[in-house]
Amino acid sequence: MNIFRFAGDMMHLTSILVLLLKIYATKSCSGISLKTQELYALVFLARYLDLFTDFISVYNTIMKLVFIVSSTAIVWCMKRDRVVRRSYDKQLDTFRHYFLLAASFALALLVNEKFTFQEIFWAFSIYLEAVAILPQLVLLQRSGNVDNLTGQYVFFLGAYRAFYILNWIYRYFTETHFSRWIACISGLVQTALYADFFYYYYISWKNNTKLKLPA
């Protein structure tokens, strides 16, 4: 494992911790898209089916479990916690995420590394992760004002993607048989979706003003 991959994983972990902190500290999930969170929980559940079949490292196994548990806990909290669920911006979170699900699954059936149950679900999770942030970005755009923790949550998620791209570039030059074009192309698409958000995040950071997305 190289430093970029590790930094990416830590950014990913940080984003989840920031989100948990926001929900627990403020007892509110306003500005957070339940649809995006549901998609992420599904991404991890579909991708880590290999927990039962392949062992890569203790690090990988622990991280996989952490991602599954934390993402399902967030969804559970937003749906079931008496206090938290009242702050959910349901009327703003209207992105039709079932289309993303269907499209990702259809693509996984067509484009995969091997036509097996596990590989199809792996490809599905990669495609779904690439677009899972869309309901969140749409929600932020609609609500206009973004609170600090929500802004940082999306920032860390974007940083995680950026480090994964550096990781792939590094692996491409250091490993002899590095070819994973499904993950790389999807990863590029996913990172591109953050470009707009990063621009406004940078502007607000530079001017030391509250993050505001244009309508």
């Binding site: 991708r47 392949d54 890569i56 990988n60 590394e113 091997k114």
Partner: peptide, 10 residues
């Protein structure tokens, strides 16, 4: 070495 179909990233 890892086989091609094993996914070593998260």
């Amino acid at each position: 070495p890892l086989e091609q179909h094993m996914h070593d990233e998260l």
